[in-house]
């Protein structure tokens, strides 16, 4: 194989991997917690939110990176916010059109992807310095890493709180439901446990 091609591929792979595992937005960077917790009491809502977030992060990272030489330093933040907002509006309209019920349940949280700190964080930390393709992968990796954790939290919250997965009942009906899991404190507790678990398991990357 052409060594140059191989190197580029491995760079791409390592960029993806870093966002998903080593520098995972939730348990390592603690970014974007805001909109995470509100939607994670049902797996289906979480999944829709995740897909929206991955698309928004990847595309806005790529766009920010493609425009990085043309954006004046002084209005950089504003430009980034506008780029992100444009993608989020598209996603919001899509969800409203095709999944009206879920759009209703997600409420303002789709719009709040705009101020989700991961997207801004990746745009600022990575996309402002790297090419569009790598930035796209970085956004994708971070988005997937973020989503995976959300799905883990949602899995336990829905299983223990409603006794169902994706709306299908799986636990016996006479088992007592953990109502606390559906309520806000449950989200905080699950998140804390997830952070604890992953920080203990995943070793800190050697600098």
């Amino acid at each position: 194989m052409n060594p140059l091609l191989w190197m580029r591929r491995s760079l791409a792979v390592s960029t993806l991997r870093r966002g998903m595992w080593d520098d995972n937005p939730i348990y390592r960077q603690i970014l974007g917690i805001c909109s995470t917790l509100a939607v994670t009491n049902l797996l289906l809502n979480t999944l829709v939110m995740d897909v929206g977030l991955i698309v928004a992060t990847a595309l806005s990272s790529a766009t920010v990176s493609a425009l990085r030489h043309y954006t004046p330093k002084s209005v950089r933040m504003m430009a980034q916010v506008l780029i992100i907002a444009a993608y989020v509006i598209l996603i919001d309209l899509m969800i409203k059109a095709y999944l009206p019920d879920i759009s209703e349940a997600l409420g303002p949280y789709v719009g709040l992807i705009i101020t989700n700190c991961i997207i801004m964080g990746r745009a600022e930390a990575f996309a402002a310095k790297n090419g569009p393709w790598l930035s796209f992968l970085d956004g994708l990796g971070c988005g997937i890493g973020y989503s995976a954790i959300l799905l883990i939290i949602a899995f336990f919250r829905e299983l223990l709180g409603f006794g169902s997965l994706f709306g299908y009942p799986v636990l016996p009906a006479d088992m007592t439901r953990w109502t606390i899991m559906v309520m806000p404190p449950g989200a905080f507790f699950m998140l804390a446990l997830v952070i604890w678990f992953f920080r203990a398991v995943v070793p800190t990357r050697a600098q």
């Binding site: 970014l31 917690i33 806000p184």
Partner: peptide, 8 residues
């Protein structure tokens, strides 16, 4: 605490 906004 109920809407999880402003966590960062």
């Amino acid at each position: 605490l109920a809407n999880f906004l402003g966590m960062c």
